[in-house]
Design a protein around this nucleic acid. Sequence first.
DNA 1: CCATACGGATCGTTCAACAATCTCACAAGA
DNA 2: TCTTGTGAGATTGTTGAACGATCCGTATGG
Lengths: 233, 233
Amino acid sequence: MVAAEPVDAVMALPALPKRSSTAEQAAETLRRQIADGKLPPGTKLREEAVSAALSISRNTVREAFRLLAHERLVEHALHRGVYVRTVAADDVRDIYTTRRLLQPLGIEAALHDGAVRDALDVRVATATAAAEREDWDAVGTADIDFHRVLVAACGSTHITAMFEHVLAELRLAFLLMPDHRNLHQPYIEGNRRIAALLGAGDRAGALAELRSYLDDAERHVLGAIVEAPSEAG
Amino acid sequence: MVAAEPVDAVMALPALPKRSSTAEQAAETLRRQIADGKLPPGTKLREEAVSAALSISRNTVREAFRLLAHERLVEHALHRGVYVRTVAADDVRDIYTTRRLLQPLGIEAALHDGAVRDALDVRVATATAAAEREDWDAVGTADIDFHRVLVAACGSTHITAMFEHVLAELRLAFLLMPDHRNLHQPYIEGNRRIAALLGAGDRAGALAELRSYLDDAERHVLGAIVEAPSEAG
DNA sequence: CCATACGGATCGTTCAACAATCTCACAAGA
DNA sequence: TCTTGTGAGATTGTTGAACGATCCGTATGG
């Protein structure tokens, strides 16, 4: 019945041109604009305006909005439009509650997996180098990446995907902070200590250091957010 | 500028009618049909057909599809349509990997929270009563609910929401099993033991029992799924 | 037997229109 | 002054038709 499959040699097409719908491209564009702070939290996205700006139809804009809404990057209010999400203090607390639960699982995994520990070391080195040349964007990326790797070490695609959303939400919170450029700089040292303790096989130490990192960061973000809500009301 | 706020006494409106778009209602309809097995895994959902069946426009159907696709209840293949998702063995393994990581966190929370333990006891009682009268649907609901409550005890909205998706995916897997009616019956006893151990404050025992439950369930589902894939390759 | 070309079916996207709902300013009333 | 309608204008929600793009199965040719 089933003949031996030819197993085409051509496996990795270098760059399959545009394997994504217009709506997905539009969503990606908006996603980037939001991440870059060009569309600050609270901004209203009018269908007509976006439609014109991206030269796509209003229907396609709506599909893009659905995608972003499910990522919780924007909020969709029926008949009232979509707004770039503004994360509140409660949201931040939720984020750190989640991280305090999730990341210890990553610590556990890292203790059993040298490759993960190596990957963490790389992130620390990258962050250090970036700080050296005062590239704060890169510092932030490396800091976040450190924790992304840690959670991914659990080996659960669901948890990894969910954590990605958590980090996206956290990035939104960072946008609200006045000094979000060098926000991460103080935390490089914390990451380095965690990595070192993991290397030494010190579970309790690593967990304690992680806890300290998260508590500090939460305080930091909360402090900056409550004093600068998008608009007093 | 900002006068003392009156703080209206009217806080809890009993039930604001039904604020949901047509697309969301359509999604809900399809969601239910899928959960009930009326749209078995692998079924192709043609836009035109759904549009006609629900008497809504094709554009609105597409919005509904986007919603379901993000819940991973359906798969959207560009230019090829949407299909009711077929979960594979790997997906099932992913689900149980996730549960083995997540649910111990719930055990920990339950040990510190009597209300959670009570809620778990209620689920066990409900499942037992349902089994008594051979209402296997109710047994399944109570079984799943037991674990939902356990995870919700963590107090993380992100984790709770994510686990909801995991359970939805698991329900899809159940649909593929030949005997999914009384599937849960063997596990009532396991839940009862977990609840009892929690009541006794036996952390290690509860964790071991949970682990045993998950390992058994995974074997069970995997065994039933591999022998009945939607269509042989 | 394999490759290619064709045609129908379905999806992706656009457009224009209308209905439903919200927002806001303004007027009426307590 | 504060609250409560009221209406116009703006924006969203939904529809239906249209057309190009893409996929799939079949027929055709080597």
